[in-house]
């Protein structure tokens, strides 16, 4: 099942931070592939969604970048900083709590189910 943009919007940053926390030095395309694979094809990040967030993380000091020439083109690798690790921890916990609450809200039977 593909996850809709609307649902994904608020959690892209946390997902990117989580993936970066577990893998050192990743570039944009690699990140999208990784997320797609882990989510078993449910989350396909467009680069319109990915790069603004990566650059925001960079300008906030959560990640640092390193450029490398690979196959005759420049590839930019992202790596979490110390501050970024802390941000990742906070963001992931926040998302987990959110998921729990949503679980409670959606999982509960309010008697709305029609027989």
């Amino acid at each position: 099942m593909m996850i809709s943009k609307e649902l994904l919007k608020g959690s892209v940053k946390s997902i990117v931070l989580k993936v970066l926390a577990e893998h050192d030095n990743m570039y944009g395309y690699e990140l999208t592939q990784k997320i797609e694979k882990i989510s078993e094809g449910s989350i396909k990040l467009t680069f319109g969604a990915l790069y603004p967030i990566l650059h925001k993380l960079e300008s906030d000091g959560d990640v640092i970048t390193e450029s490398e020439t690979v196959n005759n083109r420049v590839r930019v690798y992202y790596k979490l900083t110390k501050k970024g690790n802390e941000t990742a921890r906070v963001k992931i916990r926040e998302l987990m709590e959110y998921i729990n609450i949503i679980q409670k809200l959606i999982g509960r039977d309010y008697g709305l189910a029609m027989s």
């Binding site: 570039y27 944009g28 395309y29 680069f47 790069y51 650059h55 450029s67 083109r73 420049v74 590839r75």
Partner: peptide, 26 residues
């Protein structure tokens, strides 16, 4: 590919290089 991307006139930081690399990968 670079030519096509450069025509879009992106100037911020290393964004242009990243987009070229991303499209090349695809």
């Amino acid at each position: 590919i670079r030519n096509d991307v450069e025509n879009c006139g992106i100037s911020y930081s290393h964004l242009e290089e990243e987009l070229i690399d991303h499209i090349c990968c695809m």
